[in-house]
């Protein structure tokens, strides 16, 4: 049976992890490669690296990081942040990334999704969507949530599927950082409307939240950052808990 995936997300700036990551066993907690290897060892099913650098050299720094990660870890990983062209994706995939995640660039240029799917295959194209409710309507936001668009979450999600996205990473900005649980209602609706996997993001605080998002939110995977980085939830323990709730996981 296909298992539900647990995905730690690492924020990267200038080739280093950003948030103070609290791993006692690490020599260098700011080294994304070492952190990634640690997560791979402890049962993470996949990793996401989100680059938030804003420097001129960011493309090269990210490409170098991808190469170092691919060299070290034996589980799949996705890279996102500032990817806006076929050339950007080409170098990241060549360097060993399994998937890329595009967000703002997909909204600005939806044709990019078609181009990436045609050139590299849908399986490596993740479209990340950040949204929050405005007057009861789930509205897509850009630039880490700073810029609002006219796009409706569900309409946009259906469009990206039609254009060839292989997966959707949905972050609820209403839930992100609250530790009150994932946006399960919206997630379940996405799963019903679409026929590609949905990754839940934003709101993880307890192990119960993961159970809820897999059962009520019908999510295929759940992504979180700080609860893993700060050991509030450890992945082996989380997976045992999910297994006890009869949710299929890889142990």
């Amino acid at each position: 049976m296909l298992t539900k995936r647990i995905i730690p997300c690492l924020d990267i700036k200038n080739g280093r992890t950003v948030k103070g990551v609290n791993f006692v066993a690490l020599r260098d907690a700011g080294d994304p490669v070492e952190l990634a290897a640690k997560y791979a060892e402890t049962g993470a099913d996949e990793l996401v690296f989100l680059d938030i650098s804003a420097t001129e050299e960011r493309r090269k720094t990210l490409a170098d990081l991808v190469l170092r990660v691919a060299e070290k870890i034996n589980i799949p990983f996705t890279v996102g942040g500032g990817i806006s062209s076929v050339e950007d994706v080409d170098i990241l995939l060549q360097n060993g990334a399994d998937k890329v995640s595009i967000n703002s660039s997909a909204v600005k240029n939806p044709q990019l999704i078609n181009e990436l799917a045609a050139k590299f295959g849908s399986q490596c194209v993740v479209v990340a969507i950040d949204a929050k409710q405005i007057n009861g309507k789930w509205t897509v936001h850009l630039v880490g949530g700073k810029v609002s668009t006219e796009l409706d979450l569900f309409e946009w999600a259906q469009e990206v599927e039609q254009r060839g996205a292989g997966e959707i990473l949905f972050t609820s900005m209403d839930h992100d950082g609250t530790k009150n649980g994932f946006a399960d209602e919206a997630l379940a609706k996405l799963s019903e409307l679409l026929n590609i996997p949905i990754i839940a993001s934003g709101g993880a605080g307890t192990m119960q939240h993961f159970t809820d998002t897999f059962i009520n939110g019908k999510a295929d995977a759940a992504l979180a950052a700080s609860v893993f980085h700060f050991h509030e939830i450890d992945i082996p323990e989380l997976k045992l808990e999910l297994k006890n709730k009869n949710i299929p996981v890889r142990i």
């Binding site: 049976m1 296909l2 026929n195 590609i196 996997p197 295929d220 995977a221």
Partner: peptide
């Protein structure tokens, strides 16, 4: 078929 999500992505037995 469309009975399942396509692509299959993830860990299976």
């Amino acid at each position: 078929s469309k009975e399942v999500k396509v692509p299959q992505i993830g860990w299976n037995e």
